[in-house]
Computed example of a mutant assay.
Amino acid sequence: MKSADFEYLINQIGHEIGKKTTPFRDPIPVRESLSYIFQFSTQSISVVVPEVCDALIACLSDKIKVPKRQEEWPQVANDIDRMWNYPHCCGSIDLKHI
């Protein structure tokens, strides 16, 4: 990802995914949660990834296409499998299959 694209995303969703410091822990910084997430525990990843995805969808919904209803997801996965032979894939961002 280009650094300009990364900065754009941080500016768009940073306020949505940023956490506050508490007496019990320091939060994962926004820049790290977007770029180096897999250096953190599985528990942290399981919380951060859905939050980042939700924030991306909310902030960029006019720029990316996401099914509106749950019933549409299997059709998306079937289409991707048929066209590119990636079973159980529901989308792609920056050449990373999801």
Rank of each mutant, 00 (worst) to 15 (best):
S33K: 12
T21W: 10
E7S: 11
Q75P: 01
Q70F: 02
K2M: 07
I98L: 15
L56S: 02
E71R: 03
P87Y: 03
F40N: 10
K63A: 09
S44C: 06
D54W: 00
F40S: 02
C53H: 00
P67T: 01
W73Y: 14
I37G: 05
M1H: 11
V30F: 07
G91F: 02
C53R: 09
D62L: 06
M1Q: 06
I98N: 14
R82T: 13
E51V: 06
N11Y: 04
S41E: 11
M1S: 11
N85Y: 07
I80V: 05
I64V: 15
A77E: 07
H15E: 10
F38M: 05
E7F: 03
Q75D: 04
S46A: 14
V49P: 00
L9E: 03
I98D: 11
E51P: 10
E72R: 02
Q12C: 15
K19A: 15
I17N: 02
R69I: 01
P27C: 08
L34I: 14
S61I: 06
K63Y: 06
S3W: 14
Q39E: 10
D26T: 14
A4L: 12
V49W: 00
K19Q: 15
C90H: 09
M1L: 15
V49C: 10
A55P: 04
L95E: 14
M1F: 11
W84A: 12
P27Q: 05
Q39W: 03
F38Q: 05
K63D: 07
K20A: 12
F40H: 11
L60H: 05
D79W: 11
D94P: 03
N78S: 13
I13F: 06
S35A: 14
R25Y: 09
R31I: 13
L95N: 15
I98K: 13
V66L: 06
P67W: 03
E51C: 11
Q43S: 09
G18N: 02
E71N: 06
K19L: 15
Y36E: 08
R69D: 01
